[in-house]
């Protein structure tokens, strides 16, 4: 199988490491070769962060380059717009419609562009816009945005819901398990 590429992008602190951990666990169970590249250190502090997940028969590079991503899963609207160049022609963007202003916008040095989801669609990109924050809150925690989005992404994979839920069990502490399972189902089924 040719290598598949998933980019998880967002703002430092939004929980992208748990999302990539879940994907990694799931894909390992399926017997794929995998590489997951993470960001640690300074850029984690509220900056733009990106995690690369690649899987296939044999994966070489740990990163995804422009024009290569089959999926971009974005935890924040502006971040999806930032990385569109990395999407493969025909790839899919799954984006949380939540907006988090970066510091240049907060200080008034720049403006948060309006209507980004529409702009992406108008540019011919295949975009699923999801209010993951509302669904996460419905599941019981605004922190579950990451699992809601993984639930949505899971629609495009040929794996049974039960297998995903088992992978979640291996990745989250017991006391948050039911909440995360609810969040996953909401993302997958709504």
């Amino acid at each position: 199988m040719k290598t598949k590429n998933i980019m998880i992008v967002g703002v430092g602190g939004q929980g992208s490491l748990l999302a990539s951990k879940l994907l990694g666990r799931m894909l390992l169970q399926k017997g794929f070769d995998i590489k997951v590249s993470e960001v640690h250190g300074m850029s984690q502090r509220g900056g733009s962060v990106v995690t690369y997940v690649r899987f296939g028969d044999k994966v070489y590079s740990p990163v995804i380059d422009k024009g290569e991503a089959d999926f971009i899963v974005s935890f924040e609207l502006l971040e999806a717009a930032r990385w569109t160049e990395y999407l493969k022609p025909g790839g899919k963007i799954v984006v949380n419609t939540q907006q988090i202003s970066p510091m240049p916008v907060i200080t008034g040095a720049a403006e948060y562009p309006q209507g980004l989801a529409g702009q992406m669609q108008a540019a011919g990109l295949d975009v699923d816009a999801v209010d993951a924050l509302a669904l996460a809150q419905q599941a019981g925690s605004s922190k579950a945005v990451n699992i809601v989005l993984m639930g949505h992404l899971s629609r495009y994979f040929d794996f049974a819901e039960e297998e995903w839920l088992q992978a979640i069990e291996q990745c989250v502490p017991a006391k948050f398990l039911e909440m995360n399972k609810t969040a996953f189902r909401l993302g997958r089924n709504i």
């Binding site: 430092g12 509220g46 733009s48 422009k66 160049e85 240049p104 720049a110 980004l116 702009q119 540019a123």
Partner: peptide
């Protein structure tokens, strides 16, 4: 040869790391 994706026309503000 490589391929590139679609770049949006919108000006995308930077998101540098910040003090929490």
């Amino acid at each position: 040869a490589t391929q590139s994706g679609t770049k949006l026309d919108a000006a995308i503000p930077m998101r540098p790391p910040v003090m929490c």
